[in-house]
Design a protein around this nucleic acid. Structure first.
Lengths: 243, 243
DNA sequence: GAATTTGAATTTGTATACATCTCGTGTACA
DNA sequence: TGTACACGAGATGTATACAAATTCAAATTC
């Protein structure tokens, strides 16, 4: 079966069928294009991606291992839910791990790490200008993941990657509510924090890095709190955990 | 192909082929029965487990997602190495996360959690009496994982599960060197710390729980340091990362 | 003799076929 | 009418077949 190569997969890895399905689904789940608890039956995915069940299953297994998908034996896969308990866990674990990686990044960053960080921070500013919420969430995650990687601790990197994925799902709502053009104060604050964080890492200033990290998280939490308090109901898009 | 059911798989989950391969390999990797960097080619595993390549591949993907196996595209799978950098990362991340889950467990443990904890602690004492290193490492991991689960934070649970797996691999050496019958002082200290930790969680005494956790980790680190300093060379069993 | 090429054997990636399980539907029976 | 059972369509789990990539060694070239 000759599958026509669609587009944008030129750079990077060779991109087999599994990667195609995995990357696409992962991004769609994180962007909330596919809503939480949506069923992912193999037949549908096979038809959609034009590949056989084997790579589809392998992609689902990887997504399940990452926590983005739930697989129940003999009963198919579905997109993981984002309950309120998850929201709390994200901030709880995120707070701690972000502070740790911020400090470690100061200790261990290489010049190459720093260059990547500065590039990512610049990319984020561009994306924030553009107002494209997906792009913003994506480049924001990339920046923070690069900081994690600069910490040179694989356990922190991996757990933070998971936290970021779920965080980004929620951030879809957050950005929409907190980065409106009519009020640029939040956007400005974010940019300022990013710059300060990169600076702290460049100067190997652990205390400053941790302090900005805490402020950054607080800003995010405030936004969420406002969302929850206001009429704009995050919970509609999420799902109350009732399993 | 009628595969004869070997043994011990009666209780628990239905246990399909994937689970059989996954569980067996996972345990063998963690017990260092399969040495780090050993190649895991599909043919060999297919022959050994008497199943087809499909479940073997799915098991390998799960193990890779867990960090116990490395898969390189078109170039097969191998058991992840345990370098000195990993050792440092384990203690670094472990310290932080253990303290967090100890405190959270105090806050959130249910009566059921506590009952499981006490049972697991008792099981560990039995296994330590027996002197069976594998059993000790296993029940020790189980106890600590139960504490993580009592914290009710899935990110901590998942990252701690990964840390524990690698920790248990190293612990194979640790136990052999530190729990010899001729000197029961370390064993006694461990048991005492476990009891104190369970007590703290029962009494919801966060500070005590964190303090014991720190002491517990220090005891472990001291043992490792001794190992490294002495003629018994941990590094022989590990592998210096040179990729 | 060293480096490069080529090609078959081996191994992995993907597709398809077969086996088993789940769940809804309809029917029999109380 | 309601419950239980049986059956079948559809979905997942596993095995096998085929395609593509890698490897290693022999042959060729410089």
């Amino acid at each position: 079966m000759n599958q026509v190569v669609t587009s944008l997969e030129a750079a990077g890895t060779p991109a087999g069928s599994v990667e195609k399905v995995y990357d696409t689904l992962r991004r769609e789940i994180i962007c909330m294009t596919i809503a939480p608890s949506t069923d992912l039956d193999e037949k549908t995915l096979v038809d959609r991606f034009g590949v056989s069940r084997t790579p589809v299953r392998e992609a689902l297994i990887r997504l399940a291992a990452e926590g983005l998908v739930e697989i129940k034996r003999n009963r198919g896969a579905s997109v993981s839910e984002l309950g309120l308990a998850t929201l709390q866990s994200i901030f709880e674990a995120g707070d701690l791990i972000e502070r740790a990686i911020a400090r470690l990044a100061c200790l261990r960053r290489t010049e190459a790490d720093l260059a990547h960080l500065e590039q990512a921070a610049a990319d984020f500013e561009v994306d924030m200008q553009s107002g494209d919420i997906n792009a913003m969430a994506l480049s924001n995650s990339r920046l923070h993941l690069l900081i994690a990687e600069a910490s040179k601790n694989k356990y922190f990197v991996d757990s933070y990657r998971r936290i970021l994925a779920d965080h980004e799902r929620i951030a879809q709502f957050w950005y929409a509510a907190n980065t409106r053009p009519e009020d640029g104060s939040v956007s400005d604050a974010i940019l300022k924090q990013h710059r300060e964080l990169v600076r702290a890492i460049r100067d190997k200033d652990q205390d400053a890095a941790e302090a900005v990290t805490i402020a950054h998280a607080d800003l995010c939490k405030d936004g969420i709190r406002e969302l929850l308090a206001s009429g704009e109901n995050v919970v509609r898009g999420l799902a109350v955990e009732r399993r």
